[in-house]
Structures are given as C-alpha cells and as structure tokens.
Amino acid sequence: MISQESQERLAVFDMDGTLLQGDSVSAYLNCLARNGLITEDFRKDDDYHRREFMNGTLDIGFFYRHVLSPLRGWSRERLRDFMSAMTASDIRPLIYREARDLVKRLKDEGFRVIIVSATFDLIVETVAREIFSVTDIIATKTAFRDGVFTGEPLEPYSHQSGKALLLNRMLQENGWTLRGSMGFGDTVNDIEMLTAVEQAHAVNARGKFRDYAVSRGWKLLEFSRTEGSPEAN
C-alpha cells in the first residue's frame, strides 16, 4: 500500500478525442478493411454508432461485440502483432502533439498517468505502452478461452459511470487517492470521471459537454496538431 503522504499525484486521461484526434476504433476498422478482414457492409452503421457515442446513448456492449467479431479465434500472439502494427500505422499519426507533450510534462513533474478509455483493452494497452510509455490503464476488458480470443467484451464496461467505478476500484486496490489529481476528457461520457478528480479539463469540448464544463468551471483545452500533420514534424 502507498501512503497518502508518499503517493504520486494522478493524471487521468480519456483516450479517444483527448489523446488522439477522432476514434481509435475507427482507425482499427480502417486497418481491418485495408487488410481485407471486413467488408464495406460491416461498417454501414458507422455514422449512427458515432452519433450515439457522442450523445452518450450508445449500447457499448452490443457495439463491441460487433467490432470485435472479426478477431474471434485469433491467438494472443497474432492479436499482439496486429495491434502493434495497427497502432504504428493508423493511430500514431492521429496522436495530438499537445497531448503527447502534456503527458510527458506531467510524468516529469511526478504525476502517475492513467489512461481510462471505453475502448477495448487490446487497443488501449498497445497505445498506452508503445506511444505514451504508460502502464496504468483502465479499458473495456476482452475475453480469451484456452488462449483463443472469444470476441466478448467483459462487464463492467469502462464507459460513462463504468469509468468512475473502475477508477475507484484501482484507487482502492493500490491505496491511492485523488488528492491533487487532474483529469482530461472530451465528451459527456467522461463527466463522471472528471467530476471525481480535483482539477478537470475539457479537451476540444463541443455542444452540451462544453456547456456543462463551463458551468462547472472546468478548464478548456484545445488540441489540434497531430503527429501526422506537416506542422508537427
């Protein structure tokens, strides 16, 4: 157990739309399509799913069973190699340079960075490890049976209230507190997580999420430069 006196301050980051531009699951689906692993029809409801997510009304369990289905039957090794290659080719160019620099600065200042995402763990673990050198994550867990991927997301999902629930579970397991903590998110799905930290930041906030952030006095941040943009090089 880490005492409150000696513990690091925590910096809690949502991933999609906060650390990277857009949605890592869309990048994942792009990679699947490019490699002939899904058909065009597989993505016919993409726009609907995106709107539902932004509105906070997406059935996350149903959605992840759908997007994970092409990976059923894969071995851990095959999944690891695919996620690593996909992260390098499809997600790294989407990373906000401002977010990358912020994570580095906070780590240098002694913060323990935790990435908390509704996205499934196969992606989040890879992005956290290979791009941000972060080992503490909270994500929607996925299931294996006898070393083979089942395609099933596991409850509780790391989504909306699930983010706060799983964050609190991590705090209890490690003897950490949110004293002096910071949080960063970009949609209504992050409200409960951001309400839990001491200093909340709304990244590229729009619509009712921006209105809510302003009403709470949260700091507003704008990220725009991605690793794939010419000005980032």
Rank of each mutant, 00 (worst) to 15 (best):
L37D: 08
R65K: 14
D81E: 14
D41C: 12
R78L: 09
F82W: 14
T39D: 13
K44N: 15
E52H: 14
L79D: 12
R105D: 15
R97S: 03
S75A: 09
G110W: 04
A99K: 03
G61Y: 00
D41P: 13
A118T: 03
T87A: 08
L106K: 02
F63R: 00
N55T: 03
S89V: 13
T119Y: 03
R112H: 00
V67L: 09
T57E: 06
D101V: 05
D45V: 06
G61M: 04
L94Y: 07
H66N: 05
E52C: 14
P93H: 08
R105M: 10
G36N: 15
N55G: 05
I123C: 06
L71F: 07
A99F: 00
F63C: 00
R105G: 11
A99C: 05
I123Y: 00
E125V: 07
N35P: 04
D59F: 12
I38P: 07
I115Y: 00
G73M: 08
E109I: 02
D59S: 14
E77R: 13
T39H: 10
I123M: 08
S117P: 10
I91F: 04
L122D: 03
E109M: 09
S75F: 01
S84G: 13
D121G: 05
L37Q: 15
A118E: 04
V127F: 01
R105I: 05
G73N: 08
M54S: 15
A118S: 14
I91V: 14
N55P: 04
R34P: 01
S84A: 15
F111K: 04
L37K: 15
D101P: 01
R76G: 12
L58R: 01
E52K: 15
L37C: 10
R100E: 13
D59V: 10
Y64W: 07
S89Y: 07
L68I: 04
R65N: 07
L106S: 01
R50P: 03
F62G: 09
S89T: 12
V103C: 03
R78D: 15
L94T: 06
R72I: 11
S75Q: 13
L106P: 05
R72W: 01
D121N: 11
F120W: 03
I95K: 00
F82D: 04
S84H: 13
R80L: 02
D41H: 15
L68F: 03
K44W: 07
G61T: 06
L122P: 00
M83W: 00
E40D: 14
L106G: 01
Y64N: 08
A88M: 04
I123L: 11
V113A: 04
F42H: 04
R105E: 13
R72E: 12
E40W: 02
L79K: 04
V124D: 03
K44E: 12
L79Q: 14
R50F: 12
A85R: 14
G110D: 02
L68N: 01
G61S: 12
I95C: 10
D121V: 06
S69H: 15
K107S: 06
T119G: 10
M86H: 07
S84Q: 11
S84Y: 08
R72L: 06
D90N: 09
